[in-house]
Design a protein around this nucleic acid. Sequence first.
RNA 1: GAGAGCGUAGCUCAGUCGGUAGAGCAAAGGACUUUUAAUCCUUGGGUCGAGGGUUCAAGUCCCUCCGCUCUCACCA
Length: 564
Amino acid sequence: MVFHHFFLQSALDGGQRPVKFKPASFCSLEKHQLNNSSNMADSLDQDNTGLGVHQAARLEKLKKIEALGLDPWGARFDDRTFVKPVREMAAQVKFRKEDGSEIELPDFDGAAEPIDYKAWKASQGAGEEIGPVVRVAGRIMLLRTAGKLYFLNIRDWTGDIQILLAKGQVSDADFDLAKLLDFGDLVGIDGRLGRTNTGELTVFATKLHFMTKTLEPPPEKHAGLQDAELRQRMRYVDLTYNVSSLQTFLNRTKIIHSIRATLAKHQFVEVEGPTLHTIAGGAAARPFTTHHNALDMKLFLRIALELHLKRLLVGGIERVYEMGRVYRNEGISPKHNPEFTMIELYWAYANYETMMDLTQQIIVEAIEATGQGYQLKWGDLDIDFTPPFQRRTYSDLFEEHTGLKVTDAEGIAQLARKLGLDTNGKHPDVIKSEVFEEKVEDSLIGPIFVTDYPASICPLTKRKAGNPDIAERFELFIHGMELANSYTELNDPILQEELFKTQLDGMAEEDSMAKMDTDFVRALRYGMPPAGGLGIGIDRLIMLLTNSRSIRDVVLFPLMRHES
RNA sequence: GAGAGCGUAGCUCAGUCGGUAGAGCAAAGGACUUUUAAUCCUUGGGUCGAGGGUUCAAGUCCCUCCGCUCUCACCA
């Protein structure tokens, strides 16, 4: 994925760590006690508050900030500019000569060799650097002193920038306040944009505004927070200190925004269906169960959006979608979180081919929204999203990968047994489907639309005209991962009722989509227009478009065990 | 659910054959007016995930448990 150039700090990793020799000391206690009484560690030891030394030191500074008459939790700070646009003002930093003429600075950012700015200025004769006055705010990521100077690098959600806070250039009160700054604190700065001697774009502070004290120490300042569990449990820390994490989640919102924009172009409307269902229909998955006390009613958290959206199609909302959370009480893996985000959409008077075009458009426009090209990396793998995506029929792929015709039930059963699959008492199409998953799906690099599935495993899908054994359905696969699922929707209430009643042999009820929903059938009896429907796993799409190998990297707060 | 790996300072990580627990960053005190992973001097930080066992001696070997990661299975 493409990172923005303005995260300068992130480009500084990978270097060698300096190794310093530190002789052990055997008489430290004595020396320590000789230190003056303002030694913070001494007073902290006596506090015996149970706080760690880092937390206690920060609390101490907080008290000192209060003692200065300042609010350590900050206040409204109007008219600030985000760091990214401030950095874009770099060209406004100029050198004004004695005669009043303004000249451009050397090209620091494009220079191959470091430029000696001090020497350059000296060579211009008398004059001074000028630059726009700016107001910024952010979190202190780096902090160093050089005599009576403080260099801070602050970060807001658009990038990082250096601040120079110098004695004599701010009030004495502000300079004293700077002593009480810690990594992680939030500050506001008024100052002038300029360049230091090394050419680093810097805000030369004229005023320091204390915004918020941070009472916990930040993670290691170069490596960031590495522990996968801590990154998920404390996403707030992860987002602050791992630039790529923030970038991924900001890209997530761009992708979701793009999907809504694409659908808006086709006049879709977004709705909100119930998440508490009396029947967990629309997909094959184990639901979470809950209970409504006043009605004394067992309820399920929804496992799909389908059946209520189709009811709205009956109601005349002709292009309708919902993007929202569904819940499945099943295993957790890098591709599975118990709650995840799906979009389902229904388009009256369309069919599954319309949906294929739309799916491709949604994905292509989402990639464009993230500012990437169509060739994406996904871990070690490559994905080529250049449209049009390949379209192949289920039966062709089946034959290609197994050498067997989809109609050869006996041969398929034999192959299934050879693969170690249990075929006893199973419907031939269930066996076929298992063989397909085993032999075909994992080899689908894609993006590839697999079309025309065996009808018997698709109880909500319209059958192909003239071929009742084939369902007008496609799934989109990328690197073996199912990303989208689409039908020409079944709108025949009589057939729908029949299919709800038909449990395929060898399929457990909880694994089946065939759950009788009499109200849904009644809705169909009032007339649902012929329609195409589509479902996309949003988290998985975001994984692919943000080069994330785990769903837990694209879900802000994935489900975790209780903290011990 | 099965298998493999991991768990050491606030964070990131070393720890050899079982023999006194290590580093960097962070923290505390100090120096430095253009640094930038600043640098330099000084100092303090550990129930080695928990419990048990073997041993003169366990971070290290064995057992049980807890947690995390990966792979496989179910699932999208």
